[in-house]
Design a protein around this nucleic acid. Structure first.
Length: 497
RNA sequence: GGCCCUAUCGUCUAGAGGCCUAGGACGCCGGGUUCUCAACCCGGUAACGCGGGUUCGAAUCCCGCUGGGGCUACCA
């Protein structure tokens, strides 16, 4: 069978990592099914008050950034377009009319106020809120009067009063839901746009979707969807349903931006690599350790590798917690697979602007020194800023454990004397290191007997780089140059007095 | 509350009745390496929610309980 899957995001906010998660699984399944599998992107923008074009653009750009290429979609078109629901109004109107004509749906004129009162009463009576069927019994005449008077109207689904809806889920097996627990859902809103339920079913059918792979939150509305397939006479080819577990916050609730960053834009801005984010989402589906995924620097390559051992039926059902810590680690891993020269391009593509004071000839070397020390690209700038800017130190910055203030001053003076001896032409990382180590070793330390180099060196780090934890000192000093390095040591020494 | 889904280390997961003394990865802890911090290497910590069945044998199958989650809109 020719497999056709889709992801159907609603453009009502920032592109969500859960959308990418679902998209990835749909893309993998279509691809793993063979060469003729197709993956569709459909924009579900039927909520006119919340949908925005900016959001749609961001969703497309984000999925593209992650390498989740779709075969059919609003931008690339396809045989069953348009792929944007707001452009398919005529299709829904036609199908809605069909349901009404066949007696499978009914016009409802109830006001928002009445519905609200109804629900309040039901809640008070400890009943589950549901439409009470008020307009189900409207006479032909009453309906026409309402229409003539221009009373706003929606279309509701007729639902069997008893019996059980049974369907099969790829991951969960047989699911049974009693019809009496299914509400008479609105299918067409009073603004003339369809709700999710109608649009989704109509489009999935018309677009010949064979597998509906979506979030778990849709399980309880699946009976409505099945009913629609039946009403339209499509029950012969209802798609296969697969409900995916929902991504979770660390507290196990459904992933939300209140508790965890959810926007793909956020991760991009922080300097996460698309292959790292995709890889991470992949671990939520298949947590086995595939080391080969670490070697994939292109998202396309990564996706291909994931597809090679993808099995939709083996996804574990516990909602996975979105663990930023592991994502960050993965990002560091992917970062380090690149050469320093590639890092320059990656940083630039990400939007990093080198301070002009850092000469172009030093940049690759600086990148090489920095890349083992960052996990996300946004850590790069702060780490190398000292090359362009002299540290603004206070006396307190120079007070380090294992190094009394008097000894710190001694250490700085010592370094100054020793380093001044190095000829300009020999000002190299190895020479600087040797001279400094020898000087510290040969010195008598009245205020810090037996001082080890590793303790003394910290004050040099602070003086030169502004921080006791920074890029390797000798390299930094070589890059800064003899004059600048000595000047920073001097400044630090002055600060101590 | 009602309906539905779900349950292996803190986290992601492996596990398909005997290969389980439950494996890997992140995290954490310890060690090595080292000019700081990282990176890297080595080692350690830590789980089958509880109670009943079925079976010669259960993490695995069944039931109940408990915990977690979702849905309960003219949002998706």
């Amino acid at each position: 069978m020719k497999v056709r899957t889709r992801v159907a995001p609603s453009p009502t906010g920032d592109p969500h990592v859960a959308t990418a998660y679902v998209a990835m699984i749909n893309a993998c399944f279509a691809r793993a099914s063979g060469g003729d599998g197709r993956f569709i992107l459909r924009i579900e923008d039927t909520d006119r008050t919340r949908s925005t074009q900016a959001s749609e653009e961001a969703i497309l750009a984000s999925l593209d950034w992650l390498g989740l290429a779709w075969d059919e979609g609003p931008d690339v078109g396809g045989p069953h377009g348009p792929y944007r629901q707001s452009e398919r109004s005529a299709v829904y109107a036609e199908h809605a009319a069909r349901l009404l004509r066949d007696g499978h749906a009914f016009a409802c004129f109830c006001s928002a106020e009445r519905l609200e009162e109804m629900r309040v009463a039901q809640r008070a009576a400890h009943e589950p809120p549901h439409y009470d069927g008020h307009c189900l019994t409207l006479t032909h005449q009453a309906i026409q009067e309402n229409e003539r008077a221009g009373v706003p109207c929606v279309l509701r689904l007729k639902v069997p009063r008893d019996g059980v809806c049974v369907f099969e889920d790829v991951l969960r097996g047989r699911i049974e839901i009693e019809w009496k627990t299914v509400d008479m859902q609105v299918l067409m809103k009073s603004d003339g746009f369809p709700t999710y339920h109608l649009a989704n079913v109509v489009d999935d059918h018309l677009m010949e979707v064979t597998h509906v792979i979506r979030g778990e939150e849709w399980i309880s509305s699946t009976p409505k969807h099945l009913l629609l397939y039946d009403y339209f006479g499509w029950s012969g080819d209802t798609p296969t349903f697969c409900h995916l577990p929902l991504l979770r916050n660390p507290d196990k609730s459904k992933l939300s931006k209140r508790k965890n960053p959810t926007s793909i834009l956020y991760y991009r801005a922080r300097g996460f690599l698309p292959e790292a984010l995709l890889h991470f989402l992949g671990t939520l589906v298949d947590g086995r350790n595939d080391e080969a995924l670490l070697e994939c620097s292109a998202t396309s390559e990564l996706l291909e590798r994931m597809c090679s051992h993808f099995d939709l039926t083996r996804i574990s059902l516990g909602g996975p917690v979105f663990d930023l810590e592991k994502l960050t680690w993965l990002n560091g891993q992917h970062l380090r697979r690149h050469h320093a020269s590639e890092m320059l391009a990656i940083l630039e593509a990400w939007g990093y602007a080198w301070p002009p004071a850092i000469a172009a000839e030093h940049r690759e070397r600086i990148a090489r020194l920095a890349m083992d020390r960052i996990r996300t690209l946004d850590e790069f700038g702060p780490l190398v800023a000292f090359f362009a800017e002299r540290p603004d130190l206070s006396k307190a910055d120079l007070e380090l454990s294992k190094l009394p203030p008097a000894a710190a001053g001694e250490a700085l003076a010592l370094a100054l004397r020793a380093l001044a001896e190095i000829a300009d032409a020999l000002w190299r990382e190895a020479e600087i290191g040797n001279v400094l180590k020898a000087a510290v070793a040969a010195h008598e330390w009245p205020f810090a007997q037996g001082l080890r180099f590793r303790d003394a060196v910290r004050v040099y780090y602070v003086a030169v780089t502004g921080s006791p934890t920074s890029l390797p000192l000798f390299d930094a000093m070589e890059i800064l140059g003899k004059g600048e390095s000595l000047r920073r040591l001097e400044t630090a020494l002055e600060k101590l007095h």
